[in-house]
């Protein structure tokens, strides 16, 4: 039983990473209705920017704030420059655009900062948390930040005018335009916010997985899985999904014999697909009602 509890705890710690990423994925899905394959690379690039700032002597929290601001602006710029012209293009063409963006960011980051693995500092320290060996203060801090982000997002979407306008633009664009909401800028804002959340996720994840241009690949896959599991329409679901995927992954690795690191991913994905077959809109997503 103690083994079980420990593994669940460790799963929650890794799950926090996925939850952060899943939150960013859901944000952009809300704004543009697509899964952004370049999300992880955008987060990776932001993390490198913060690392560079720290190398130049900026203190951690200063670099943190600057990076979030930079990512917000960069997200909006990417939408305005690259994806606004594609708004009328078929969905699959947009997906190809995400893949192109992925290739560009990955390769540029590799050229600027090369592919060697770098240490990344944590503001929370890495001593054991409350005497537990499995979860460090950094991981506890990461969980705290994820929950804080979730609460802030809830307040933003629930109680502010801009949040309301964004929700309107995402759910019924035509009607939103009729009441005077600039839906095109709401999409740009969605990109900016997703990029900013992604950068926070990146900076929280980097001390765990280390900093290098390919650091986000695995995380993004789990992040997608978490978002889809929780339901793409629900930020809360995304966070719960993230923790669930982390716990699944750990328990599968512990209790099913012969499952090495190689098979963890396929089994976690298979479980998720099974859940989806039973609940096609994810655990917390709203089923889409179609008009005939």
């Amino acid at each position: 039983m103690e083994l079980f509890a420990n593994q669940v705890l460790a799963g929650i710690a890794t799950g926090a990473i996925y939850a952060c990423m899943a939150l960013a994925v859901v944000m952009i899905y809300q704004a543009i209705d697509h899964l952004n394959f370049a999300q992880g690379e955008m987060a990776m690039f932001s993390t490198f920017v913060s690392w560079q700032l720290m190398q130049w002597g900026v203190p951690y929290w200063g670099a943190f704030v600057l990076t979030v601001a930079f990512s917000f602006a960069a997200g909006i710029a990417i939408e305005r420059l690259l994806f606004k012209p594609l708004a009328k293009a078929p969905i699959l063409t947009n997906v190809a655009g995400f893949i192109a963006l992925y290739a560009i960011i990955n390769s540029v980051a590799g050229l600027i900062w090369d592919f060697t693995i770098k240490q990344y500092p944590t503001p929370f320290g890495s001593s054991p948390f409350l005497g537990s060996q499995l979860i460090s203060t950094h991981q506890a801090g990461m969980i705290g930040i994820t929950v804080l982000l979730l609460v802030l997002l809830f307040i933003f979407f629930r109680f502010t005018r801009v949040g309301l306008a964004m929700r309107a633009a995402a759910s019924l664009p035509e009607s939103a335009r009729l009441v005077g909401i600039n839906t095109s800028w709401m999409i740009a804002l969605g990109w900016g916010m997703a990029a900013a959340i992604g950068s926070i996720a990146g900076m929280m994840i980097a001390p765990v997985v280390f900093l290098e241009p390919n650091m986000m690949l695995g995380v993004l896959i789990y992040g997608f899985a978490a978002a889809v599991l929780g339901g793409l329409t629900s930020p809360f679901g995304a966070v719960v999904g993230g923790f669930l995927v982390g716990i699944f992954e750990n328990l599968v690795g512990t209790y099913i014999p012969g499952v090495g690191n190689e098979l963890k991913l396929p089994i976690a994905l298979a479980l998720i697909v099974t859940v989806l077959v039973v609940k096609p809109a994810g655990l917390f997503g709203r089923p889409i009602v179609k008009r005939v």
Binding site: L82, A89, A96, I99, L101, N106, S107, V108
Partner: peptide, 22 residues
């Protein structure tokens, strides 16, 4: 050589910008 991924991405963007329907 160093930027092959970026060049590929840019070429792909060019194609989908010019002919979104391929």
């Amino acid at each position: 050589k160093g930027l092959s991924g970026a060049v590929f991405g840019v070429l792909l963007f060019l194609v989908i910008f010019l002919v979104p329907h391929g």
